[in-house]
Every structure is written in structure tokens, then in C-alpha cells.
Design a protein around this nucleic acid. Sequence first.
DNA 1: GCAAGGTAACCTGTCAGACATCATACATGG
DNA 2: CCATGTATGATGTCTGACAGGTTACCTTGC
Lengths: 239, 239
Amino acid sequence: MIQINPVSQPSLVDEVAGRLRQLVESGALTTGDRLPSEPQLVKRLKVSRTVLREAIGRLEAIGLLTVRRGSGTFVANGESLTTATQLIRSALAISTHDLLKVAELRRCIETHCARRAAQFATDAEIADLQAHYQRMTTSAGLPIESVMKYDFDFHKKIAQLSGNDVLSGVLQVIQDFIYASIAQTMEQPGLPQAPHDLHLEMMEAIRARDPERAERAAAAHMDTVDARLKFVAKKSAQD
Amino acid sequence: MIQINPVSQPSLVDEVAGRLRQLVESGALTTGDRLPSEPQLVKRLKVSRTVLREAIGRLEAIGLLTVRRGSGTFVANGESLTTATQLIRSALAISTHDLLKVAELRRCIETHCARRAAQFATDAEIADLQAHYQRMTTSAGLPIESVMKYDFDFHKKIAQLSGNDVLSGVLQVIQDFIYASIAQTMEQPGLPQAPHDLHLEMMEAIRARDPERAERAAAAHMDTVDARLKFVAKKSAQD
DNA sequence: GCAAGGTAACCTGTCAGACATCATACATGG
DNA sequence: CCATGTATGATGTCTGACAGGTTACCTTGC
């Protein structure tokens, strides 16, 4: 059996995307520059506008270009870390859908962020965090989506206090993922919320500028999250 | 001057892309599954084929989907993520400052995985890890890409020992990202490699089934990584 | 002369329909 | 039973059109 590697003929879209990418790589166009308009590119590249637009769309998806309706297409600034988080998002999406495994990833990030927050947070930021805590504790009677949102917001705020927007961005992706999974599989109430004591303990530890204590509190909180997920998993297994 | 945040109304393409992404994230579709054909999706989503195709194209660009002409559109597997990052590699020149943030994410995961590996790894897996270590230490004379690859493989193996494929998957993406950035910005030799002592210490700690020690070793290793990145950052600032 | 406002030109976003090309399954003939 | 041709449905590309947003210029009033 001879190994025949299929002749992969690159599609026109890939061809055009590569050509445009080369424009940026070669330095002919740099951050902020405007590309020629679509009609002009169509004439120059001798392809249909459909193909050109799909190529531009892909380059925009990976963060290389930015399209502004009505004005034109521009070379994006490399600072857009959205591409990094988007990749993480993809990695999450195509991995297994075991919520417990995703929760473990969340644990990695939350404990680390709690520690960092205790190290770096300013007084103003801590006051802001307290405001988030207040909003969360007073959301008891609201619908489940609101309660979850305020809960997520509190954790997201701590992540932001770490000063690392990659970490907070990834945590956001994880939360979106968890929310999407939960919303689909089970909106049963009755599963116990994490006790606010632990949230309070996290906040107090950060306020006391005690990294070790903050990390322990975050870990304890994730223990309750794991326990809840296992509870739900067991329950759905019974059905 | 009041800050007016423009009401960015998401385009139809973004809307559709998000909807399709949710299908995968929610678990309704998993790796290898085929999406409905374009005509079917057009009828269901009530959008034109143009919009649908652009949305699919973007998701393919970030490695979430794979389109096979004549057969259909499928949910991609994790390996295609690597190709997606390779696509970004040359295009995205990430600053060393941002690279430090990504490295912090790597630290979160590596320390946690080292701990878990020390808890869960079987004898056979540890033997496999030793084989990886051997391969890495004997790659001294090889080109820099090979050295880095074996280094990454060693860390990836530890992540796999954690038994959580979400963690190892995300770490894979991070490594690709870091590698892409390094390969672009500076392939200068002269920057010191992480001493193999630390790698050995990580492995020994795992073999000794000592989670605390493994985590400490991983953290120490990441300290050297941070130091290297800061070294490069300082050097590039001098230029 | 200058500034405010309106308008026209240009740009991207979306749509509909058509045809080409590729992959697969099935029927047919050897 | 195997090989081949074909029908079918999938994605790839093209064309033309219109809608909606941006920008620059030009007019108008001061």
C-alpha cells in the first residue's frame, strides 16, 4: 500500500487570505493602516467579492484585521489578546464536556487570582469588590440567572484584581462555558448555592492582604463547587 | 468630553457564529460530529447563505470547525488548534509584556498539574515520563526547535498525568502560543535554558508521590521561565 | 472668512440565485 | 463479486443588487 498524500489544493479563499497576511507580515502595512477597499482589492486580485470577504473575515477572526462598517478594513493592533482567549475558548469547546474537569481549570485560576489579588489590590479596588459582594448577597430572591450572574461577577472582579487580563479573560470564557452547559442540561433549582460565608472569607482575606489565606478560601470555595457538580452528576445518573 | 461608547450592534455574522459556537460548547455537538448542511442551516437560522458561510469560515479560522468540500462541516478535533495557532504565529507579534501574562496562566496550570500528577500517576506513566526526560536531556546538540519541542513534550506529559484532558489541552494551546511568539520575536541563542535540575526535581517529586514538593518544583521552574522572559524583554527594550 | 449643517460619494453588510466542483452511495454491467 | 458509471447532495465561486453606516465636501448663513 503506497502512501498517497492527497493533493490538497488550497482554496481561493486561503490563497487570498495568505496574500493579505503577507502584506502585513512583510511590513507593507502596519498597525492601523487601512487596506484598499473591497472593490479595489477585487479588481487587483481578480477574485469575486465573496471570496475576498471570506478571506478578510477569517483574518479578522484570528485578530489580524479589524473591519469597520462604512469606513474600511484596518490592520489590527497586536495588543488584542482576544485571540489568545479565543483559542482557549476553542480548546475548551472541543475538549471533553465534563464539567468537573472544567471546574478544575477554574480552580487553578481562581486560587491563583485570589492570591494575586491579596498582593496587589488597591484600597479603591477592594471597595469596589465589596460593592460587588453587596450586590450578590442582596440578589437572593431574583431569578436564578441573575443570581448566577452576580456570583460570576464577584469572582470575575477578583480575577481582575490580579492585574492580569489574560487570567480574567480566560475565567470569563470558563464561566460562559459553565453557564452554557448548565443552562442546557439542567436548570433545576434545589441545588444548594455556595455559602456566602466563603465569599466573605475570600474578600476579607484579600482585604487583609493575606495571600495564603485568600488562596485557601478560594480553594475551599471551589470544593463546594465540586461538591455541587458531583451532586448534580449523581442525580442525573439516577434519572 | 463625554465618553460615548458606540452601540456596537453585533453583525449577523457574529450572531450566527456565536450560535454555532454555542452548539459545540453546550455539548450538543462534539468532536467529529457533522453539522447540518448549509441549506438546512440557512432555513433554520433564517439568514442568507452568505452570512452563514462567513460565520462558518471564521469558526474554521480559529480551529473550531473543519469544512470538507463535498462532504460537509464537522466539529474539529484538538489537533487542528495547533494549525490555527501556526496560522497566527507569524501574524501576531505579541509583546513580551503580554507574554508574561500568558506565562502566568501557564504557571497556574503547571503547578496544579504537577501536584495532581504526584497524586494520581501510575508507575507505568512515571516510567513514560522518565523516557521523556531522557529524550529531553539528550537533545542538547539539536536545533533550537527540537530542544524546545522536547522540553514542551516533557511538560505536556506531566499535564497529561493529571488525568484532566482539559488542563493538558489548554496547556497545549498556551505552549503553542508561547512558541509562536518566541519563534517570531527572537530566536537569539544565548538566552539560558531552564536548568535540567528543576526538571529532574519535578520528576523526582512526582515519582516520590509528594504533591507539595512537585508543586514547589513546578513553581520554581516557572520562576526561571519568568526570569528568561524578563531578560528578553529588557534586552529588546535596549534595542 | 468661517462655522454649522446637509448631502453625496464611498464603504461594508446582507440578500438571492446560479453554476462549478467535489465526495459519496447506489445501481448497473462485466 | 468487483469495477465502473452515474445520480445526488455537499461545498466553492461568481454576479448583481440593495441596505445601512462613515466620511468628506460643499453649500448656506453669519
